[in-house]
């Protein structure tokens, strides 16, 4: 069952990366900022996965993001691994409380984007030279918050977790 869910997670992760690069970054970017859809999908899937599976999903999805994007290989892999790990660590505290779940999505998006910016800067990419860096981080978190209302139940349904025990219980 766990491997089945990991496989679903990986498939959805690949779809998320393709949608991020073709749809969100080009057409769905109000105020010039797109949602961080890949991060949202990894976090949403991690609510349904074991700790190891969540980290593997984060790492492989991040690696694909790095390979298809124009970023240093390994940056998104690290960020999404951490996102998967932290999500599993905190999910027992937020499950059953929609407000806390959404707040965690918002906070994880901000933390993930900031971690990316810090790592990028440490490894020579001038991410913080972007005058809109904080606007991008905040808006992406808001968009993820809105999309979470759709993606969280969808992931719970795809991974066939009992909705009564799920994040909207």
């Amino acid at each position: 069952m766990r491997f089945r869910n990991l496989n679903i997670g990986l498939l959805v992760g690949v779809v998320a990366v393709i949608l991020q690069t073709t749809v969100f970054d080009r057409y769905v970017d109000p105020f010039g900022v797109a949602p961080d859809f890949v991060l949202l999908v990894v976090v949403a899937a991690s609510y349904q996965l074991s700790e190891e599976a969540a980290m593997l999903l984060g790492f492989s999805t991040g690696l694909l993001t790095d390979l298809l994007g124009n970023t240093l290989l390994g940056v998104w892999a690290l960020v999404l691994t951490v996102a998967g790990y932290v999500t599993v660590r905190i999910r027992y505290r937020v499950e059953g409380n929609p407000f806390l779940t959404l707040a965690s999505i918002f906070a994880l998006t901000i933390a993930g984007e900031l971690l990316y910016a810090i790592l990028g800067t440490l490894f020579g990419q001038q991410v913080f030279s972007d005058v809109n860096a904080f606007k991008k981080v905040l808006l992406a978190a808001v968009y993820n918050l809105l999309l979470a209302a759709l993606i969280l139940p969808l992931m719970a349904r795809l991974m066939q977790k009992d909705p009564a025990a799920g994040v909207w219980a």
Binding site: E51, M55, G74
Partner: peptide
């Protein structure tokens, strides 16, 4: 045991990510 295993995997993946970044540079 499970906690130790997942921590080991976490550290391995983070180390691998850093190695990839360094190698890419």
């Amino acid at each position: 045991q499970r906690f130790a295993r997942s921590t080991a995997l976490f550290i391995s993946l983070i180390t691998l990510s850093f190695l990839l970044m360094t190698f890419d540079i």
